[in-house]
Design a binder for these strands. Structure first.
Lengths: 272, 272
DNA sequence: CGAGAGGTTGAATAAAGTCAACAAACGTGG
DNA sequence: CCACGTTTGTTGACTTTATTCAACCTCTCG
């Protein structure tokens, strides 16, 4: 609970931001400590009655754009919650390629895959300056025992991650390129709305290549889909600036198609 | 804790097995009740010290091939552990198609996606006669509080599910058809070995179509890949009977390829 | 203002999906 | 136990889709 963001930064230096690493003391001390009451507040749950007056602190870490929060194989101890900012989580495939798994933002949980074998299976990189809350699993479990609301929320957040991944598998398994890109835009728009930002107009924090990896497509295909959506008037894209003119059209594009069914299968379905 | 498998069966009848549903009492009572000590034994953990002499039972449910364990949208209360048998979990996509998510077998956990909003997001169907242990979440949480080994195992099992799904996303996002099919075979072989069955020769419990859905491929493509592997001598396939001649070759097929990188990306990687 | 990273677009290619026809396996009842 | 209908799996020919490659554009930021 001492020397806040330094420890993390030092372990996984990132070229671009080396110069900014050595002055974490510039954060006010209250920007590095996050009380239990702050946490409960942030998560929208009540304070545990048993700790109403306890001074209990979590680490509140700051990351610059480009820095890694943790990397594949690193020893696990904490899960992280995004307080602000945008990130990407990725895993390295057997043949060395990067696979983007998700783009965490405010309220998202990260690092759960580290629980299983006590080392992270994925890595997380900040796509913008970020504030994260570090929740050591041991602490969390102890707190959960005396605060069932927190306990339930933990399980629900993890379950929700699982559902998100299931949805992703479904999309990758059955949707064509345009439909995937439409899904991405709708998902992002919904997310921004939930965070209180504009659902109609936003800036992409990730590159076309990262979007492609996330969706299982090549960068060129993502770019072409964007251009196509722009052409039909559903959106306006100008490099990373996106505005959505018709979410309905995007939703149609997302829900309608469905390739890869196999025609034998299809005709047999109709046969009944 | 009464009328064991009936309750589940009655709620989700499956045409094919209707005749076998009405006699669940034929199971001996000890085949329907599964003590805490049995559970700990099965999971490979010690008994909680606080309950060394407690008579505590879980439901031990039997399902016939084809029956559904739970369906999408159904109220959540329990997670399930596979004691024996083979199953499939699937979700229905927005356009009505079935997406297979995994093929649970001995030791696997099912239903975690139900925690988030108190109703299951996927559905589970038995592919063979099965024995499942029903673990009501409430009970499990209470037990976990007084038995940290169980608590840790719970978290680890869920985390492991998340990792499995991440791997699946990686494969769907970046591997070609043959490589996916090779992965499927290797995974299955490993799994059988772990359960003490032959890793070299086994019977597929699922159809080509189900494999295709699982891997994001059409049935025809799966069939062609099988034939191809047979042709090069890596395996022998005869309908659902598979024997593996060279796991090494399959592993190569799985690890090597990697399409969908995008050539622009590729040349830029080399440029550095 | 210039270099380099990031993004777009067209043309060619490869990969997987589609359609169709057939074959093998299964199981049900005569 | 065999015959027949149904379901499941295989294979070839063709089409569609997305990737690949290459050239060019455009932002950004140092």
């Amino acid at each position: 609970m001492n020397s806040p963001s330094v420890a993390v930064n030092r372990t996984y230096p990132f070229p671009k931001v080396v110069t900014t690493i050595e002055k974490p003391e510039s954060h006010g001390s209250d920007s590095c400590r996050f009380s239990l009451s702050d946490l409960c507040d942030f998560l929208g749950i009540s304070m545990p009655s048993s700790r109403k007056n306890s001074e209990f602190y979590f680490q509140h870490l700051q990351f610059k754009s480009g820095q890694k929060v943790f990397t594949t194989g690193q020893d696990f101890s904490s899960i992280y919650i995004v307080h602000s900012g945008f990130l990407k989580t990725s895993s390295i495939s057997s043949s060395g390629g990067e696979q983007i798994l998700c783009f965490p933002m405010k309220g998202d949980i990260m690092g759960v895959d580290g629980i299983h074998s006590k080392n992270y299976k994925s890595e997380v990189t900040a796509l913008s300056d970020c504030n994260l809350i570090s929740l050591p699993l041991k602490t969390l479990i102890l707190l959960a025992r005396e605060h069932s609301e927190l306990e339930e929320l933990m399980y629900r957040m993890i379950s929700s991650e699982l559902i998100r991944e299931q949805e992703m598998i479904g999309i990758m398994g059955s949707q064509n390129a345009e439909s995937r890109v439409a899904f991405f835009l709708v998902q992002l728009s919904d997310r921004f709305q939930l965070m209180g930002y504009s659902a109609k107009s936003f800036i992409l924090r990730m590159s076309r290549e990262e979007i492609g990896s996330y969706l299982g497509l090549s960068m060129e295909t993502v770019s072409r889909s964007f251009s196509q959506f722009d052409r039909i008037g559903a959106i306006n894209v100008r490099s990373r600036h996106v505005s959505i003119n018709s979410k309905e059209v995007l939703e149609q594009l997302f829900k309608f198609p469905e390739s890869k069914i196999g025609s034998t299968t299809k005709s047999r379905m109709l046969a009944k």
